[in-house]
């Protein structure tokens, strides 16, 4: 059997094994650290930015990981399910194709809007958390779910501001979405920390309200403080405060997966390995 055929066969086998199993500890796969991710010890699953791959031309590194049985989750950043328009069918089709090509157990995106009025934000912006907006986002999420063959998980975002119209917290809004649509949760504890520092919203309060029984997995990341504001840059070591929130979460629920996000200014392989080890330690219940 040629190498390619062997990879194909292994991918099919791993595909069947991936569903409904705990994800474990993982790291965001990025092209810049592809070989590092393959070499790191104890990478149980990875995520790939969905907009950065073509399902018909998957990076060789992802194929190698899949052949090893490592689940790969497409993580979208451009859908804008919190936007005023129904989610773009082309973007949904792309997410679905990524999930299929990768044999992914689920797809994740964000509770955010990324464009409006013909303009691109270039990043994830918080949705006004009103009952009216919730109805729109519920409809958007249902449309997304209809287009995907695997479950969708939505992530809480890091915000630098709140809307004056806000009637509920982000945790309450996500709770409403879960209740209405059955969408899964991707809880980013670094984003909870960011909102605690920048907006005074206590992370533990969010953990108390979020329906953690619907947790798909968790994000962990580092950032830096600048002028009293925490910037969730994914370019630095995870601060102890973020790991403390992870521990708080693990005291409430056994998370199916926890994934480190590191997006630029990559450190040494040893440094990334040590970050994964710190995450594992923080997950151990007292």
């Amino acid at each position: 059997m040629g190498e390619r055929a062997a990879v194909e066969a292994a991918v099919t086998e791993a595909e069947e094994a991936a569903v409904d199993e705990p994800l474990g500890v993982g790291i965001g796969w990025r092209p810049e650290i592809d070989l590092t991710v393959e070499r790191l010890e104890g990478v149980d699953f990875v995520e790939v930015i969905a907009e950065n791959v073509r399902p018909d031309r998957l990076p060789e590194s992802l194929r190698v990981l899949r052949a090893r049985g490592v689940p790969v989750i497409p993580h979208g950043v451009g859908l804008g399910v919190g936007g005023a328009e129904p989610p773009d069918p082309d973007r949904l089709a792309h997410l679905a194709a990524c999930a299929q090509a990768l044999g992914a157990p689920l797809v994740s995106e964000h509770l955010a809007f990324v464009r409006a009025g013909g303009m691109e934000a270039g990043h994830l912006l918080p949705v006004p958390r009103t009952r009216e907006a919730l109805r729109v986002v519920v409809d958007n999420v249902r449309r997304a779910q209809d287009a995907l063959e695997v479950p969708l998980a939505l992530e809480n975002v890091a915000a630098l501001f709140g809307w004056p119209q806000d009637e509920m917290t982000e945790a309450e809004f996500l709770g409403g979405l879960v209740e209405a649509t059955g969408v899964k949760l991707l809880v980013d504890v670094a984003n909870l920390y960011t909102n605690e520092v920048n907006l005074g919203l206590r992370a533990v309060d969010a953990l108390d309200v979020l329906p953690l029984s619907e947790l798909a997995y968790v994000h962990v990341a580092g950032g830096h403080a600048h002028g009293g504001v925490w910037h969730d840059t994914h370019t630095d070591h995870v601060p102890d405060e973020v790991l403390a929130i992870l521990s708080e979460l693990c005291a409430r629920v056994d998370p199916p997966g926890v994934l480190l996000e590191w997006d630029a200014d990559y450190p040494s392989d040893e440094s990334l390995q040590s970050e994964l080890d710190r995450i594992r330690k923080a997950m151990v219940r007292d």
Binding site: I49, E51, V114, E120
Partner: peptide
């Protein structure tokens, strides 16, 4: 790299 919100219509 990273969380680049890409390719808008």
């Amino acid at each position: 790299p990273g969380h680049d919100v890409v390719g808008a219509a």
